[in-house]
Each structure stands twice: as C-alpha cells, then as structure tokens.
Design a protein around this nucleic acid. Structure first.
Lengths: 252, 252
DNA sequence: CCTTGAATATCGGTG
DNA sequence: CACCGATGTTCAAGG
C-alpha cells in the first residue's frame, strides 16, 4: 500500500505511473480531491467542481462518490481503461469503455490524497431472503398459500414470460402464482393477468386462478386485482441463513 | 484531511474518535483493511475475510467495496449510525438504521489505512438523454412518431397507471404512446395494452391505437405487439446538452 | 451473444 | 408518508 498526501498534479502522475499504471488489473487506486467530471455515453452529463472520492478498481470499474448518497454520481463500467496526464497544473483522468461505448474525463484542480493498494479478496457473499427463498418456502409448504394446494412446476414458461409457480388447488383448478419479495406493483398485476390468459388459452373453457403473493399489497393494486378477478396473499418473509452458515456466524 | 497508515485497532479507534466521532455528519471516513461483514435487515448476509475499501459518508451511508464490481458487496442506507470499538485486537464497526431496520457488523483484523476528510461539494449533476428527454422531443416534434400526430397530454393518469403521451392521429383516432429510453420489454407491452384498454373503456366503441416507442424493440416483443394489434416505433435517442451547458463544457 | 427479471435495488416526484 | 416508475440501473442466469 502506497500513499501520497496533497501531491501536485505532476507528483500524482509520477506516483500513479510508478505504483499503478504497470499493473492496473492488480491495484486499486483511490483519489480524494476537488474535481469536475464530463461523461458521454448512454447518456451525457456534466458535474461542476467539488470535492469527491474517486475509486479505480482492479477490474476497471471507476466510481466517483460525492459526500452523500449510496450511488456514485458518475462511474464507468468494469473493463474501462484509464489514462492519466497533467494539463495546466491539473491532473486529468480519462476513462474509455467499449460496448457500451462510454468515456469520462475527470479533472482535478487539487488533490488531498492518492493511494494505491493491491487488495486480495476471495470471499463471496452468502445471502438469504430473496425471491427464490420465498418460492422455495412455498414449494416446501404450499399451505402458506392455502390448504390443498399442489405445486407442479416452477419457472413455467408461457408465451408472455415465466410463471414463478404453477399448480392446482384442492378442486383441481389450475393456479398461477406470481411471487414478489417486497412490494406488489401494478406491473405485477399486468404480468399475472397475462400469465392467467396464456394458461386459459392452453385449456380453453376451464377456470384458472391467479394469485399475487407479496409481503405487502397496496390498496390500488388490490383494487386492480379484484377488477381482474385475481387474488392475493400477503405473506411474511422469513430471513434465515442455512444452519451451517449460522454456525460460521456463531463461531466467530 | 487526516490519515493514519497501518494503525493497530486501538490506534484506529483513537484516531476515529479524535477526527470523526464528534461530527460524523461533516466528515467522511475511509478505511482499507482485511475485514468480515455480517448484515441483517431486509435480507441477511455473511461475508468472509477479505481486503476491502469501506466508506462512511457524511449522511450515514456506509459502503463496503470489494476489489471488483460497480456495486458495493454490503452497505447501509443513508441515515445509519456508526459506532467503533475494539475486540480481541480487532476494530469493530457497528452500523444501525431504522425504517427499514438494518444492522451491519464489520470486523477488521488488519488495517492498511484510515482517512478522515471533510468534503465540500455543492455541485449537482447535469444530465441529458433520459426518458423525459425523449418525451420532450416527441412533444416538440410529434413527426418523430408520424405525420399529423397531435399530442394533447403527457403523464395522463388512467386507472392502471400513467400514460407517457396521449394524443390523436390525423384521422382523430386516439393514440396512446409508451416511451422507453432503452429496451422495450414484455412488461412494456402489458403496460401499453392496459392503457389502451383503459382508454377504450372511456369511449366505448372507438378505436384506440397504442404505440411503443423505444430505441430497440426485440423480435419477441414485436411479435407480442402484433398479436395485441399494437404498434411500435424504433427511434434514435439524441443525447444533447442544452446550449448553455455546452458552453460551460467548452469554456473549460 | 442476447434476453429476462431480481435487487438489502436506489432515487426522485407526486398526492 | 405511501406509492410509483426511471435508472448511463447492475448483475446473474438461461437459451
């Protein structure tokens, strides 16, 4: 890890050349300074002078963070190529990306800090509580939806998309279930409606039930569902890690 | 700006207490080190040991970045409250957030760098090329869609949502236009279909046209549109900044 | 390669 | 505050 504090543009370029340029795919570069940003690609943007944190990752991702907000104000996708130069005593960073074609210019008129470091991280995130987990729960215990329900297929492909869960109720009526892990929206209703229509076309005369399953269904959406003669279930989301992972957590 | 390199956990806690804790809403904290992360909230996750960049922003946003990828591997939303402590010669960071309820523990077994800085940034991003711009273009020159088209309303609210653009063609037939700035999807078709149905219900017998307008419409989507007797236009997206902004760009 | 849909989505606008 | 839709969405999975 190498750091230089309050460097001039010339010092910064030299420092970056020595510690980063030769192996950008192995070192992360962090800059803090007063900069402006121009971007041109899928959209186009300008960002006036201000103090920001700039990160160039080992995969060519570039992030420009303002002092607030979770999202970077500007960025370049992984695979971008970065070049550094001085211009009028300012450090200039130029980033290019192909497919999608994007480029970004960052100009620093002052630098607080430049750090180069080689990070090693082989861990991957273990996560639980996503839509697939909710679907799994229902497959394991269809009574969550209703008594007598039998699930026969998940990710059933129909013309207008893929049905999360497909099965039959206690009266052998086909049931289409659309699962949302957070909020049910109007779009969810459109989706469900189309799936039910697709299934009906498959077996003409028969009745087909459609159930939207989410932790919360807004009133507007309930209204729309009723109009379309569709149903909904509000289900609690269980957030649990597998037992062996729990142990890892405990061991620490 | 204050920086300490390769501090022990005790040194780091002291450094953070002196430079950050008193006014976390005015200083950004950046840590680089070997850490593990536990998160529990809307979902739940575990991240094993690895070297990462951790950022605590002035609004309480916390970001944990691995050496690759645009997205942080873990994070806390703005408004989180952070506490630091030592435990078994490790630096422990604990973040809490209310609504949604989320908490995150970060444990560092080694630190490469800790920096505290107060960033000033009053600039806001000027951006062009988004959906609203495409809608503006069509309003300014409806011929982009077709000759004789007259737009009478944007964001027209109907039962199942809001229509981007509503108007009449040269034969006075109502036209519903749904604009997508990037990719048209099956969902877009469902949306458009619902809007057309809503408008038809409003004036019973009359014909209503529905046009999906996007830079690219995949074949699958075209097929679905044809089935529903809907139309599409593939329009080039113009990415241009207003003239005064162009000047700012040039001036630099 | 393209296409599809989830996300601890985030974020801004509106009622 | 709830709700809704866009995003330079990003990302992973599947055909």
């Amino acid at each position: 890890m190498n750091t230089v504090i309050h460097p001039t543009a010339t010092e910064a370029v030299h420092f970056i050349k020595v510690h980063h340029t030769a192996k950008p795919e192995k070192t992360m570069l962090v800059l803090i300074g007063d900069c402006m940003v121009e971007y041109h690609g899928r959209a186009r943007s300008l960002l006036d002078w201000g103090e920001r944190l700039v990160i160039i990752k080992q995969d060519g991702t570039v992030l420009i963070h303002q002092p607030t907000m979770r999202e970077p104000v500007n960025w370049q996708p992984a695979g971008s190529i970065c070049e550094f130069a001085t211009k009028n005593n300012a450090l200039r960073l130029f980033c290019r990306h192909h497919r999608p074609a994007e480029k970004m210019h960052v100009t620093f008129r002052a630098l607080q800090l430049v750090t180069v470091t080689s990070l090693v991280d082989r861990a991957t995130l273990i996560i639980s509580g996503m839509e697939t987990d909710v679907v799994n729960q229902i497959v394991n215990d269809p009574r969550i939806i209703e008594e007598g329900l039998r699930i026969v297929k998940r990710e059933k492909t129909v013309k207008s998309g893929a049905i999360d869960l497909y099965g039959f109720d206690k009266d052998h009526t086909p049931v289409v279930i659309e699962v949302k892990r957070s909020l049910a929206t109007i779009s969810s209703v459109h989706q469900l409606r189309m799936y039910v229509t697709d299934i009906k076309k498959g077996n003409k005369e028969s009745r087909v039930r459609g159930i939207l399953c989410a932790p919360h269904v807004p009133d507007m959406v309930k209204h729309l569902l009723q109009e379309q003669e569709l149903e909904w279930r509000e289900v609690e989301r269980h957030v649990v890690l597998p037992d062996d992972r729990q142990k890892t957590l405990k061991e620490f």
